[in-house]
Amino acid sequence: MRYVMNRIGFFILSLWAAITINFILPRMMPGSPADAMFAKFQGQLTTTALEAMKKSYGIGDTSLWQQYVDYLHGLVTFNWGLSFMQYPTPVSDMIQASVPWTIGLVGISTLISVFVGTALGVYISWKRKGFLDNTLPVVSMAFQALPYFWVALLCVFIFGFKLDWFPMAHGYDPAITPGFTSEYILSILNHAFLPAITLILGGLSGWIVGMRNNMIYTLGEDYVTFAEAKGVKTSRLMFTYAARNAILPQLTSFAIAIGNVVSGAILTEQVFSYPGIGNQLTSAVQSQDFPMIQSSFLLIAVAVLVANLIVDLLYSRLDPRIRTGGSN
């Protein structure tokens, strides 16, 4: 119980720190981005409108402390400010529009590569020195060593441009009206296929090799040798004895991966012009859209923290050694 309280306290502390860093970071940057933005609106808006706008962004004459309080209040009430880039669209609306795309694409690709990779890792550690054990890690590592946005570019070039099998960009065919029609869903799947393949290929090797190494490590433990000497069946030895323990470190990586789903494959989304949050963040930075940057940042931070908390709590149930404390 103490462990659980500890973790939750930790979660709250780091959440607060993340929020505060998120507040301080843009304010540490030299030159007021807001001024640049207001300069853009100079001719179009009256002075009073500009003042009102400044006030709504919490920039202006208020003290830093007051800004911080306003910022926290805005966060809690989901009033995340208005986008500079697409003024006056609320940032929360823009995020709402792009998050499902990212979660759909990156989330599903991550899940696929975790399950396939872990299963393959168990399999090849079982067949040590077999054909797959010798080739698969190298082949998949070659994929890992390649910059995945370049692989994505190649895919666009070969399958999109040369062969014309798949569309080269966007989340769905803009000619189709969104809705629950089979045409629309097919269009989404068709557009998601190439980015998903590059994401899966890029992530797979990490899971395979990680699981393989964990398995080999666990297979060297005394209790496995004992079980083997006792005559436990190989399949039971692999799954019930070794894989159960070897999978624990994978869980930590899984938490990070799930947290990173929200930040998504920024580069992949850029290459495919996919309407997700990564694309949103890139264009926000390019146009210095600070409310947007802050919000997407916070979203990503919260996602990682929550995923970590869940895995930490799971870990304590799965591995009693952690619960009873590390040293001494």
Partner: peptide, 25 residues
Amino acid sequence: SILSFVTNLFLVMPGLALLIVIQAY
């Protein structure tokens, strides 16, 4: 606790996104 708190903070800051923001500045 202190060290892994700092570590977690840096883990929370998603690498590429943080890099992009810092580069923007």
